[in-house]
Amino acid sequence: MAEQHSPLEQFEIKRLIPVEIGGIDASFTNSALWMVLALLVVSLLMMAAMRQRALVPGRLQSMAEMSYEFVAGMIRENVGDEGKKYFPFIFTLFMFILGANLLGMIPYSFTPTSHIIVTFALAFVVFIGVTAIGFARHGLHFFGFFVPAGVPKALLPLLVVIEVISYLIRPVSLSVRLFANMLAGHTMLKVFAGFVIALGVLGGWAPLAFVVALTGLEILIAFLQAYVFTILTCLYLNDAVHLHH
């Protein structure tokens, strides 16, 4: 179609309900809409799945139980028993990212996780939360986290600075990973879909096959990146709870 301009058009933010609070643009955008949708779909799915509470689960219920087991196992393995009380947050995080990623695979939808500000906000919440947990559990001992053991005294100031920077990098690398994956994947899909039109009926079949394969890969990546984000949250939580790298 001539009106389809660019493969990046899918990432455009559109104001659906313009809102302005104290000079700050707080409009309800398409990004916000799809985040709300992800939240609704996940919540409704979970509630519908667990409504019957059967001893022998049906399809929907076993899906909910599998998600539960998956996240619970991840926390058990990476954080241990102390991680149990953080399960609700980590489960919500996983399901929200997964929901947003998967809803983004629907044609004409919007992928909020392809915007760095969204993923950075998520990562920053994790960062602040994990740091707060570290201080709450260990008090000022938490600063010991930045002092590597068994290092000559002369090198210590340098290494402490490096440790602090490597700690500050975490939320950025966490968010960049998720956002870059979603951005690159969705752009690639649109680019190859453009080739289908450009090459016409004769030559368009090869890119079409590629788009089909790529769609499968993108669905896999939607799962994988939700998993990676969650498991890194677990690892960071483990660092804060147990104070070692």
Partner: peptide, 22 residues
């Protein structure tokens, strides 16, 4: 296999972001 790719990708992002944040 995907886990290995994931680690490779993670290392790459980690290096880039380190320089960026610094």
């Amino acid at each position: 296999n995907q886990r290995e790719l994931g680690v490779a990708y993670r290392v790459m992002v980690e290096m880039f972001v380190g320089v960026g944040v610094g």
